[in-house]
């Protein structure tokens, strides 16, 4: 009786997991499938699930529809700069919030949390005007400067740093380590899971960002991939879904690569810090 009950539970749990998997994976497979179809196949009914002959030419067509090397270069520059600067800002900030006692600490931390809660849609006009005022509107900087700090990252990293025993930091101070050395040699290696998670989130959100570059750019020279791919839609007034999807596949590949790399790091880092 209880065994039958157990098997029913197990079956239900697998069914539910499969259903969730289909819901999440299907659009992704649909995108890949469409990117390899002919224009006719994209319009046919019932919809084509597997193209008769994979149309690799779609990728060439998509990439030659605009200055894609420039878009890709811009996307890479913007995203990597943001992550690098964020790490430089976040680590010392989180360290100070987690391990120092100073006047006004709670007020400052509340301000950080407040920044975390204000949506970009509220600030984009003043930020754009400010950037234009500074004369950098036609560079990549307006897509980087507003994201130099990451309130969510500071919050997450602070929580992580707080779990590192005080004695480890004290032992390092007794070992004559400077605060910079403590951060670099002790806090950072011990926080790899948190850092990898934050970097991954940051990468995904800035690589995929559409709204902010749309507001901040007015020429192809400074546009990232997301805008370039969105522009595929407007060629010739009709929607070439196979070309658009080919562009999207190109856009998504780096995220997959970064995810695979990060997930490995996360596992490794968890093994390292698995000591009390």
């Amino acid at each position: 009786m209880s065994k039958a009950f157990q098997y029913t539970g197990l079956t239900l749990s697998y069914l539910l997991k499969t259903a969730i998997l289909i819901i999440f994976v299907f659009p992704f497979l649909w995108m890949i499938s469409t990117s390899l179809q002919t224009y006719r196949e994209t319009l046919s009914y019932p919809p084509t699930l597997i193209p008769a002959l994979p149309q690799w030419i779609n990728f060439v067509d998509a990439m030659s529809a605009g200055p894609f090397p420039t878009y890709a270069k811009n996307s890479i520059t913007i995203t990597l700069s943001i992550i690098a600067i964020q790490l430089l800002v976040m680590i010392p900030a989180a360290y100070a919030f987690a391990k120092y006692r100073f006047a006004g600490k709670n007020v400052l931390f509340s301000l950080v949390l407040l920044a975390f809660m204000i949506p970009g849609q509220v600030t984009f006009i003043p930020v754009y005007l400010m950037m234009a005022d500074w004369g950098i509107a036609k560079t990549l900087l307006p897509q980087i400067i507003p994201f130099m700090s990451n309130a969510f990252g500071i919050f997450l990293l602070r929580q992580y740093f707080m779990q590192i025993p005080e004695e480890i930091v004290e032992a390092a101070r007794l070992d004559n380590a400077s605060e910079f050395t403590i951060m670099r040699k002790i806090m950072v290696p011990m926080s790899m899971p948190a850092l990898a998670t934050i970097a991954l989130f940051s990468f995904v959100s800035h690589w995929n960002d559409y709204f902010w570059p749309l507001i901040m750019t007015d020429s192809a020279a400074i546009r990232p991939l997301t805008l370039g791919i969105a522009m595929l839609r407007e060629t010739e007034g009709i929607s070439n879904w196979h070309i658009i999807m080919a562009g999207n596949v190109v856009l998504v590949i780096p995220i997959l690569v970064v995810y695979l790399f990060c997930s490995k790091q996360i596992v490794k880092a968890f093994v390292y810090s698995g000591i009390k």
Partner: peptide, 10 residues
């Protein structure tokens, strides 16, 4: 230290 405070990543 009581909990040794060894640097776990080293």
């Amino acid at each position: 230290f009581q909990n040794y405070a060894i640097y776990p990543t080293m």
